[in-house]
Design a protein around this nucleic acid. Structure first.
Ligand code: FES
Ligand code: FES
Lengths: 149, 149
DNA sequence: TATATTCCCAGTAAGCCGATAGGAATTGTG
DNA sequence: CACAATTCCTATCGGCTTACTGGGAATATA
């Protein structure tokens, strides 16, 4: 019950991997190229290897994470991925949202009156409470909390 | 994300329906038959009709609920279902467990070491925390809380 | 016997999920 | 420029789950 798809598990493991090799970019460095070079980009293939994830599958997940602005990609040779910002500023609710969209236990979280009870549906409040509990936990944890738990 | 199957939603709506027509059995009544007759059994078909649920589908769900001991069935003519005990003694975690089994966001809630990190896997603790948050909410609510929320 | 009901088992259509394949676009390097 | 390494895009496939339907057996009442 409430099983999380592997897509999400893989995404989080990839982010954890990136977070562990994250170093702050030194401000006002002499050249951007050197700063980027020092910035420890990790290739998708390397993450897939050390985490034992299907390489091609992981590629798509990283693209998705990039589209959400959580990671930054350097294309071309010697390219790879790095975190877009420090791990303590990335809430796990953002990660879940990027990989799976809004937490919605039942369809009637937004539009009520789906079931027979009409506007004031009893079960609906129960589901809304569950959503609040889940969202509360997810947004209370950051990627930093996960990597040094 | 975290979408709950209709099976579970239907099951809860059926239980809510039964809980609203639940009356305490008078203790030491003269005859069991009269007590049962007064006990407001509701047929599966009636629940399906007023809740607008596929009748045949709901039948199976009620059988499942009965197997878990949450409802009691009277077979034969004039039969139907009733709650096996007062709504305030039925935790929603029991209901979820009956309909879907244990809350298990990822497979590694029990056996660790599935992912590369070995025994002390970081993401795993995060998932365990999520499971605790969900379980905590579910076991804090009873069927009574749901029907008079 | 007739009727109403729970109960059991089987099947089906559609959708999702994890994974794979092939290649285009981009960028550093000799 | 040629090559290699990498991100990125699109399409597809097999397997599994889900929601639902159907047919009827068992059970109880009248
Ligand atoms: S409106 Fe969603 S359960 Fe009633
Ligand atoms: S053991 Fe489950 S995520 Fe690592």
């Amino acid at each position: 019950m409430f099983s999380v798809p592997t897509r999400t598990q893989y995404g989080i493991r990839a982010l954890v991997h990136l977070a562990r090799s994250f170093v702050q970019v030194p401000l006002s460095s002499d050249s951007d190229e050197e700063a980027r070079g020092a910035q420890a980009v990790v290739t998708s293939a390397e993450i897939a290897r050390t985490e034992a994830i299907s390489p091609k599958y992981l590629e798509g997940i990283l693209v998705q994470l990039k589209a959400a602005g959580l990671v930054v990609a350097e294309r071309g040779k010697n390219g790879g991925y790095r975190l877009s910002r420090p791990p303590e500023t990335i809430r796990m609710s953002d990660v879940i949202a990027a990989l799976e969209g809004e937490v919605r236990p039942v369809d009637c979280v937004e539009s009520s009156g789906v079931c027979a009870q009409g506007g004031s549906c009893l079960p609906r409040r129960f589901w809304l409470g569950l959503k609040a509990a889940i969202d509360g936990y997810l947004s209370s944890k950051t990627l930093r909390d996960v990597i040094d738990a």
